[in-house]
C-alpha cells in the first residue's frame, strides 16, 4: 500500500474520491437488495391499506421509489423493515384517506371472550367444538371485516398482527405514543371480532 508521502496530492484526492464512490455504490446496492427482500411484506400490508390491488401496487412502488431516493437517510444497523413501513404508512396517509365511515359505535363488549361466547352460544345445538366455529367464516369475511375497521385502528392491527412489529416499533412507525398503540390495537381487535362474530352468527 502506498503511503501518503509517495503519492501526488492530486491523484491521492481522485483515488480517494473513486474509492469513496465505489464504497457508496456497494452500500447502495446492498441497501437496495435488502429493501427488495422485504417487499413481499410491504405489499402484504399495503394491499390491506389500499382499497384495490392497483392502488396497493402504486403505493408499494412509491414506497420503494422514495426509499431508494433517500437511502442515505437510513442509519445502517437500525431497523430497515420499520424504516420502510414508516415510508409506507406516511405515503398512505399523504395519499389522502378517503372519507371514513363513522366508526361503528356499537357498545363494545366488556369481555375478551365475547366472540368465543357468542359463537359458542350460537353453536350450542350443533357441534360445540370451537374450532369448527372459525371454519364457518370465509377468507373474504376476514378481508371485509378488516377493511371496515376505522383506519387508525386498522393501521395498528396490521402492523402488529400481520407484520409482527412490536408495540414499540409500531409506535415509532406511526409516530404515536406506545399507550395509543396498545389502546388502538385492543379496540381494533375487538371491533374486528365483533364484525366477524355477527357474520358467523348470521351464517349459522
Amino acid at each position: 500500500m502506498k503511503t501518503a508521502a509517495t503519492v501526488e496530492p492530486v491523484s491521492d484526492t481522485s483515488e480517494g474520491a473513486a474509492r469513496q464512490l465505489a464504497t457508496d455504490a456497494r452500500d447502495r446496492v446492498r441497501f437496495e437488495e435488502e429493501a427488495l427482500g422485504l417487499s413481499d411484506q410491504v405489499y402484504g400490508v399495503a394491499r390491506r391499506l389500499a382499497g384495490s390491488r392497483e392502488e396497493a401496487e402504486d403505493l408499494v412502488q412509491e414506497t420503494f421509489a422514495r426509499a431508494f431516493r433517500s437511502w442515505r437517510s437510513f442509519q445502517p444497523g437500525t431497523n430497515l423493515r420499520a424504516w420502510l413501513f414508516r415510508i409506507l404508512t406516511n405515503l398512505n396517509i399523504d395519499r389522502g384517506r378517503r372519507i371514513q365511515r363513522t366508526p361503528d359505535m356499537q357498545p363494545l363488549e366488556e369481555s375478551d371472550y365475547f366472540l368465543y361466547n357468542k359463537l359458542e352460544e350460537s353453536a350450542a345445538d350443533q357441534n360445540p367444538d370451537e374450532r369448527r366455529v372459525v371454519e364457518r367464516l370465509s377468507q373474504n369475511d376476514a378481508v371485509v371485516a378488516l377493511a371496515e375497521l376505522p383506519h387508525d385502528f386498522r393501521d395498528v392491527v396490521l402492523l402488529v398482527d400481520l407484520a409482527d412489529f412490536t408495540y414499540s416499533d409500531a409506535a415509532q412507525i406511526l409516530d404515536i405514543p406506545i399507550g395509543t398503540v396498545m389502546s388502538r390495537l385492543h379496540r381494533g381487535r375487538r371491533i374486528l371480532k365483533g364484525h366477524l362474530a355477527e357474520t358467523a352468527v348470521e351464517q349459522s
Partner: peptide, 19 residues
C-alpha cells in the same frame, strides 16, 4: 386456544402474495 386460532385464521385469511 380459541383466540390463538382466531388470530391465525385472520392472519392467513388476509395474507396475499406479491404479484
Amino acid at each position: 386456544r380459541f383466540e390463538e386460532d382466531f388470530r391465525r385464521f385472520v392472519r392467513q385469511a388476509v395474507a396475499v402474495p406479491m404479484p
